[in-house]
Structures are given as structure tokens and as C-alpha cells.
């Protein structure tokens, strides 16, 4: 198949960016979207032009490193039959002759580095603020000493599947990272081991979230609909419930 790509090119955070138009032929429908970008980069290298910078690593939908906006939706969600990461989107999702626009995540909390690459280190800092259980190595009790009810444990798992890709932020008109933050809060809140720090955790993580310049949640739900791991919007409701409770408790700031 033949495709046309309009790709955001920007040399660095300060430079002015613009969409540039490229044509690719002999694209196989079995190729992944990133393999099509590889093909373009080989073509650009042959022409002695600079290849398009884009983040990617595992290419099996689990590391969370890749992520671009494709035809207006994060990870090309609306080009795909199922929720997907960019690396798992395949060219069979597009028609022969398709014109595809590719842009970086755009959000206040994710400064641009180059072309399609952005800085998502704010996510790490939100985790640093409390997205963990304090259990030093060696201090753990026997694993079966604390049973965890299966239903809550399954819900913890569903939320723990978040890959930290940032699609939720990129798709939110408020540039909010609430779904990301809520996934971690719900994961740890559903486990017996997560209870001691449950309410201080939600306070400090939300404080860091706001400090990083992410917007507030207004229940639009676009985040959940593009999420490759289908973290549900109700996780944000869980976050809000825990945050409300935390305001009546002493722990945390």
C-alpha cells in the first residue's frame, strides 16, 4: 500500500515546529506503525536527511515508551478496532492511499524534546511523591501471612497494568494526569499492604501532580477511552473518594 504521512518536525523545545509531508510506498499491511516510521527513516537517511525522532523500545505494547497522536487520537485509538499502543497499531488499520497526521503528545506537563519525543519525567516524580509501599528489602513477612481478597486484588491488578505512556494526558483537554495518578492510587489502595500509607499517599501524589502543571479532571473521559490498558474512569472516582477521606485525617500533608 501507499501512504502519505504529515509528521511534526521540531528541532528542539525552543525551535519552531511544523508538519512535514512524506510519501511511502510498498508499505505492507502486516507492518506495525513504528515499522512504517522505520521505513521512512531509512528513506530519509538514504536522501541524507535527518530521520524523524520518536520514542519506542519494547514494541510489544508493555514498556510505555512509544506514543504519538495519530490522526488526532492518542496512539491512533480511533484508527484501531481495539485499544492499542502506537507500536501495536498495524498498517492494516489504514486504507491504501491513506493520509496520516502524526504529532507528539502535547501537554503542559510534557515539554517537547525533539520531533515526536517529549519529556515525561513528571510521571516519575508523581510516583516519588508516594506511589509506593514502604517495605525495605528483607523486611517482608511470609507471603501467605496476609491473604488478599481476590476481587480487590484483581482490581488492584487492573489498575497496576498502567504502562505510564501518557496517552491519558495527551488526550485530555485539561492536560490532566488524573488517570495515571488514579491508577497507582487504586492499585495500592486495593491491597492490604497498601493500607498504612493509603491516605498520606493520595494527598502527596495529588500535590505533586498539581505542582507539575497537570490540569484538573472535569470528567470528560477521553483518557479512559484512549488508554491502551483500559484503566477505567472509575479509578478517578476512587482517587476522589480517597482524597476526600484523607482531608479528614491527620497523616500526610
Amino acid at each position: 500500500m501507499k501512504i502519505t504521512l504529515n509528521i511534526w518536525r521540531q528541532a528542539n523545545a525552543k525551535a519552531k515546529g511544523a508538519l512535514e509531508r512524506y510519501h511511502l510506498s510498498d508499505v505492507s499491511e502486516d507492518m506495525s506503525f513504528l515499522e512504517a516510521l522505520d521505513m521512512l527513516n531509512e528513506q530519509l537517511t538514504a536522501e541524507n536527511k535527518e530521520p524523524v525522532a520518536f520514542d519506542h523500545d519494547c514494541r510489544e505494547g508493555i514498556c510505555g515508551m512509544c506514543g504519538v497522536v495519530i490522526n488526532g487520537s492518542a496512539h491512533g485509538r480511533y484508527s484501531s478496532a481495539v485499544p492499542t499502543t502506537t507500536c501495536q497499531l498495524h498498517m492494516r488499520s489504514f486504507a491504501d492511499g491513506a493520509e496520516i497526521t502524526v504529532e507528539p503528545w502535547r501537554a503542559g506537563g510534557f515539554p517537547l524534546i525533539k520531533d515526536l519525543v517529549v519529556d515525561r519525567s513528571a510521571f516519575d516524580r508523581i510516583i516519588q511523591a508516594g506511589g509506593f509501599i514502604s517495605a525495605n528489602t528483607g523486611s517482608a513477612p511470609e507471603a501467605h501471612s496476609v491473604p488478599a481478597p481476590k476481587l480487590e486484588s484483581d482490581r488492584a491488578f487492573d489498575n497496576a497494568t498502567c504502562i505510564g505512556c501518557g496517552a491519558c494526558v495527551a488526550s485530555c483537554p485539561n492536560g490532566s494526569a488524573m488517570l495515571f495518578t488514579a491508577a497507582k492510587i487504586t492499585h495500592l489502595a486495593m491491597l492490604p499492604q497498601g493500607q498504612p500509607e493509603r491516605y498520606s499517599r493520595v494527598k502527596s501524589m495529588i500535590a505533586q501532580h498539581d505542582h507539575e502543571g497537570f490540569g484538573g479532571c472535569t470528567n470528560i473521559g477521553e483518557c479512559a477511552s484512549v488508554c491502551p490498558k483500559q484503566i477505567p474512569l472509575e479509578s478517578i472516582a476512587q482517587l476522589n473518594r480517597d482524597l476526600m477521606k484523607s482531608l479528614f485525617r491527620r497523616e500526610g500533608k
Binding site: 509506593f132 509501599i133 517495605a135 528489602t137 528483607g138 523486611s139 517482608a140 513477612p141 511470609e142 507471603a143 496476609v146 486484588s153 484483581d154 488492584a156 491488578f157 497496576a160 492499585h187 495500592l188 491491597l191 499492604q193 497498601g194
Partner: peptide, 10 residues
């Protein structure tokens, strides 16, 4: 396994 359960690995 003990350590991971204590950390909240589901």
C-alpha cells in the same frame, strides 16, 4: 515472593 507481595505486586 515475600518481598514482592509486601511491595504490592498483585
Amino acid at each position: 515472593i515475600d518481598q514482592c507481595v509486601a511491595q504490592g505486586v498483585p
